[in-house]
Simulated scan of single mutants.
Amino acid sequence: MTRISGRIVTPGGVVPGHLDLDGELITAIVPDDGVGDDVIVPGFVDLHCHGGGGHTFTTGDLASAREAAAFHRRHGTTTMLAGLVSSPFELMRSATLGYRELVDEGVLAGIHFEGPYLSEVRCGAQNPAHLRDPSMTEIEELIKIGEGAVRMMTVAPELPGALDAITYLAEHGVLAAIGHTDATYDQTRAGVAAGATVATHLFNGMRPPHHREPGPVVGLLSSTIVCELIADNIHLHPGMLAFAAHSAGPDRAVLITDAMDATGMPDGQYELGGQEVVVAGRVARLAHNGSIAGSTLTMDVALHNAVAAGLPLVDAVAMASTTPARMLGLADRVGALAPGLRADVVVMSAELTLKQVLRAGTPA
């Protein structure tokens, strides 16, 4: 048996004491006031990540995907989706077939296709050469050959055929997300009504709010949808992060990284979806127009930033672990510290800097 001591963050609050592990599972939480200042949180669950440590998910390369997942695991992300960007269908297909192996092994929880069914007006760092209207033929084939590996797809709801695509995704167990969209408020709400349940990086890649046309941000934030938030203090000002998190609540907000391969790497030139990216001072931008191109964030830093922005620790942990685990249908296995769940554990200092990571009871 392994025992980890500190301030244990559970869904019900912070419990000073000992976390007992037996093999791959959590067996008990034993209260005890004399345990020191370490903060113990569940392994993070990242719904939106494109790579890290010099490795990427976006090319469909299995060796690169393994290394990217391992890099983020060392930063506390014990469950994650592999995020692709807008690509030709041939790449989407080959990545789905290849990543099934990693899903079967438990390296990945699935695939997130962020595109190509996105708005050209709000494409951000998505390659406009690959954008297109939703194709039911493509979507149906990806879901079929994925055999459960395709877990999320981002769609702009104003595009022709988008509402039918969203409904089809939802009916087949795939999280339909709204993002990279120039939709009106009404078009956004139509996407929610069609079955969308996630907002892809709220605010970013969206028509900004206006008091006479609220647009997608207000349409999503005021709905029942779960909102992704990039907590790198670059995509969102800390005040906006706190506003959105408080508005949605911890059951409807999730922290994501939107990390690219440059995460954890030196400044320099990188590539994303066939476009050159320049990273300087940890900010990634497209070389040709300066658009923000993903992040260099890890989930341990995202949690730190969320708490620094004023969010209660318990809420921030829910946003980093519990809520995204629920969205993936994995709440009975991961996403919280409770007896019977998998021993995915992150130990942090009192200042919320990373000290130790366990996945299924094994050091990452």
Rank of each mutant, 00 (worst) to 15 (best):
E351G: 09
A149Y: 05
Q126I: 09
P42K: 01
V226N: 07
E171V: 00
A183H: 08
L97H: 09
Q126W: 03
G329L: 02
P209K: 03
G173D: 15
E138G: 11
P88E: 15
A177G: 11
H18K: 08
G191M: 07
R132P: 09
V45L: 07
P42Q: 01
H112C: 08
M136H: 12
P128T: 10
T154A: 10
A306Q: 05
P134G: 13
M299C: 11
L354Y: 10
T27P: 00
G83N: 10
Q126A: 05
R189P: 07
H112I: 10
H112K: 11
V254Q: 02
D182A: 15
T56K: 06
G148K: 04
V317D: 01
L97T: 14
R7Y: 11
T184N: 06
A70M: 11
T96W: 06
V254Y: 04
A308D: 14
T58P: 09
S94K: 14
G191E: 09
G60K: 04
V107E: 04
G310D: 10
A156F: 07
A338I: 01
T58C: 14
D315T: 08
L159I: 12
R66F: 08
L272H: 02
A194Q: 08
G6W: 01
G274E: 13
N289W: 04
D251H: 12
A325R: 00
P208D: 13
R100P: 06
V283P: 03
G148I: 14
V254H: 03
A70H: 13
T224A: 15
P250K: 13
T27M: 00
D315Y: 03
P134R: 05
T322F: 08
L221E: 02
Q356M: 07
G6P: 12
P134Y: 12
Q356P: 02
T2Q: 15
L221N: 04
A70D: 11
V198F: 09
V226C: 14
T77Y: 05
R74Q: 13
E213Q: 12
E120V: 13
R122S: 03
M299S: 12
G161F: 07
E24K: 13
D38E: 14
T298A: 06
V85W: 05
R151G: 08
G340S: 00
A284Y: 02
G191V: 13
T181W: 10
G106S: 05
V314H: 12
R100N: 10
E90I: 11
T96N: 10
T296N: 11
M152L: 10
P266R: 05
G52D: 09
N233W: 13
A244Q: 10
A193E: 14
G13P: 10
E105W: 07
A176M: 09
H304A: 07
T96L: 02
V217K: 04
P250V: 09
L169M: 15
N127P: 05
P214M: 10
D186I: 04
L297M: 14
A196D: 04
A262H: 04
G340H: 01
R326G: 03
H211E: 09
A156Q: 11
A343H: 02
V155S: 05
V226R: 04
M265S: 09
M153I: 14
